[in-house]
């Protein structure tokens, strides 16, 4: 089934999404990958405020190429999600509702997805030029020093992805 969804994700939206469904996402999403996740967890552990609200929001595992003059962003496809597995359960516990990446997740992450009624979406790896066209605005909101790994707030329109793990824990990837 195909869905057009908007962010932040509501419980109703998440409930409709089933593994294997295609989605087109419109709204604000946040980029964060390895180094940014490490820093987010450090902030949480120190009891400090995060650079963006987790509740209902979606993180895109992305480190783009630099934009040319006149471009919003450079090539912008997903990176391998499993490297974030160590950090993900904590973020889900704190209200994160969606993740966009590629590849398998750990059993712990899948469990946290189910417990917190969230969803894991897969974007097509290696299609960064095409996916960049769906990103209409982008600004670095934290960890600028991390370069490509900085946290960006991005407005996307009809960003295509596939439901890889739904809120019931159904997994599109065979072992």
């Amino acid at each position: 089934m195909d869905h057009k969804i908007t962010t932040p994700l509501t419980a109703e939206t998440i409930q409709q999404l089933k593994t294997g469904d295609m989605v087109k996402i419109t709204g604000i999403i946040y980029s964060a990958r390895d180094a940014a996740h490490k820093k987010l967890i450090e902030l949480i552990e120190a009891g400090k405020e995060l650079p963006f609200e987790l509740n209902g929001n979606v993180i895109y595992y992305l480190g783009p190429t630099p934009a040319r003059d006149g471009q919003v962003i450079g090539s912008a496809g997903p990176t391998t999600s499993s490297r974030m597995d160590k950090y993900t359960p904590k973020l889900l516990e704190l209200g994160l509702k969606g993740m966009i990446g590629k590849g398998r997740r750990s059993p712990k992450v899948i469990q946290a997805i189910v417990e917190n009624r969230a969803v894991y979406l897969a974007a097509v790896g290696g299609a960064g030029a095409l996916l960049s066209k769906c990103i209409k605005s982008s600004k670095v909101i934290a960890f600028d020093e991390l370069g490509t790994e900085a946290v960006r707030e991005m407005y996307v329109e009809d960003f295509p992805a596939i439901v890889a793990i739904d809120s019931e824990g159904n997994n599109i990837y065979k072992d």
């Binding site: 480190g63 783009p64 190429t65 450079g74 090539s75 990176t79 299609a127 960064g128 996916l131």
Partner: peptide, 16 residues
């Protein structure tokens, strides 16, 4: 994706 990359000189993949 490859067509866009070639014509607009956007890297095929962000991991260059």
């Amino acid at each position: 994706n490859m067509e866009i990359a070639k014509t607009e000189k956007i890297p095929i993949c962000q991991d260059t």
